[in-house]
C-alpha cells in the first residue's frame, strides 16, 4: 500500500511536469494570440523528425542537427503565423480548419519520408537507467525531462514577469486593441510569442524521444495532452495550466498504479468533462496569461 502511494506521489510529479512541458507552448499561444492552435501537434513531429533528417539524411553532427531542428520549428511557427493565422485571423472556422490541415499535412509528409519501419531513434538520453525515490523507481530520463520542464516554466515566467517583451505580451493577451493604441506592434509580438511557444514542445519531444517509441503519429497523443491540460486549467492561463498539469498527473498516476494503465487517459477525460460541466471556463480562466 505504501509502495503504491509512493509511486502515485512520485509519478504525479513526473507526469505533471511532463504534461506541463507539453502544454506550455499551447498555453502561451492561446494566452497571447487568443487562438486555439490546432497545428500545435506538428511541432513535436518537426522537432523529432527534423533532427533525424539533418542528422541521418543531410549529414550534420547530432548536436548541430538538434540546433537546426529548433531553427526549423521556429521557422514553421513563423510561417504558420504569416501564412495561416494572419490570413484567417478574423475567420475562426477557416483558421481552425487550416491549422488542423497543416498538422495533417506535416504528419503525412513525415509518414511518407520516415514510416515507422525506418525505426527513427534519437539518442538524447541525459540520465541512463532508473533512479529511486523511496520505494518508487523512476526512469532517469523521465525524471530529467520533468526537471527540465519545470526549469522551462520558470524561465517563461521570468520572461512574462520580468522583461519588457513579457510585459507587452501580457498586455496584448488582455487587450490587443488598447495595446495597439500605445504603439505596440502586435504582429511582431505575435511572431515572438509563436516562436517562444514552439521551443518547449520541441525540447520535450527530444527529451522523451529515447523512451517513447517515435512514430509519425506521435503528434496526436501529445497534442491531446496539451489540449486536456489547457482546457482543464482554463485556456491561455499559465497558472491554470500548472494546476491542471499536476491534477492530470495525479489522475494518471493514481489510475495507472491502482487500477489499469489503459484507463489513464479515459479517467482524466472524464474528470475534465465533469469539471467543465460545473466550471466551463476551466480551473483558472483569466483574461491574461499570468
Amino acid at each position: 500500500m505504501l509502495d503504491v502511494a509512493a509511486l502515485i506521489f512520485s509519478y504525479t510529479f513526473i507526469f505533471g511536469s511532463l504534461y506541463l512541458g507539453i502544454a506550455l507552448g499551447f498555453t502561451i499561444i492561446t494566452g497571447v494570440l487568443r487562438i486555439f492552435h490546432l497545428g500545435y501537434g506538428a511541432i513535436f513531429l518537426i522537432a523529432a523528425y527534423g533532427t533525424w533528417m539533418f542528422w541521418k539524411d543531410v549529414g550534420f553532427g547530432f548536436i548541430e542537427s538538434i540546433v537546426l531542428s529548433f531553427a526549423l520549428v521556429a521557422l514553421f511557427s513563423f510561417l504558420i503565423y504569416q501564412v495561416v493565422i494572419k490570413k484567417f485571423w478574423e475567420m475562426e472556422d477557416y483558421l481552425l480548419a487550416a491549422l488542423i490541415a497543416v498538422f495533417i499535412i506535416i504528419e503525412e509528409l513525415v509518414n511518407y519520408a520516415y514510416p515507422e519501419i525506418v525505426g527513427v531513434y534519437l539518442p538524447t538520453t541525459i540520465i541512463e537507467g532508473s533512479i529511486s525515490i523511496g520505494p518508487a523507481s523512476i526512469p532517469g530520463q523521465l525524471a530529467a525531462t520533468s526537471v527540465i520542464a519545470i526549469l522551462m516554466v520558470i524561465c517563461y515566467l521570468l520572461i512574462f514577469t520580468k522583461t519588457k517583451t513579457g510585459l507587452i505580451m501580457r498586455a496584448i493577451s488582455q487587450d490587443i486593441f488598447a495595446s495597439q493604441l500605445v504603439g505596440v506592434n502586435f504582429d511582431r509580438m505575435f511572431i515572438v510569442a509563436m516562436i517562444l511557444a514552439s521551443l518547449p514542445p520541441a525540447i520535450i519531444m527530444l527529451l522523451i524521444a529515447p523512451i517513447w517509441a517515435l512514430n509519425p503519429f506521435i503528434g496526436w497523443p501529445l497534442f491531446t495532452y496539451a489540449i486536456v491540460v489547457s482546457v482543464l486549467g482554463g485556456l491561455g492561463n499559465l497558472r491554470g495550466t500548472i494546476m491542471a498539469s499536476y491534477i492530470i498527473g495525479f489522475i494518471h498516476a493514481a489510475v495507472g498504479f491502482s487500477l489499469d494503465p489503459r484507463l489513464m487517459l479515459l479517467a482524466s477525460l472524464v474528470v475534465v468533462v465533469a469539471v467543465l460541466v460545473f466550471r466551463p471556463e476551466g480551473l483558472a480562466r483569466a483574461e491574461t496569461i499570468w
Binding site: 507587452i168 501580457r170 488582455q174 488598447a178 495595446s179 493604441l181 500605445v182
Partner: peptide, 18 residues
C-alpha cells in the same frame, strides 16, 4: 480601455515601452 488585471503603473509603463 485599460488593462484591468494590471496595476496603474504597469498600464502607463507599457505605454512608455510601446
Amino acid at each position: 480601455r485599460l488593462i484591468s488585471n494590471m496595476t496603474a503603473i504597469m498600464n502607463v509603463m507599457y505605454a512608455v515601452l510601446g
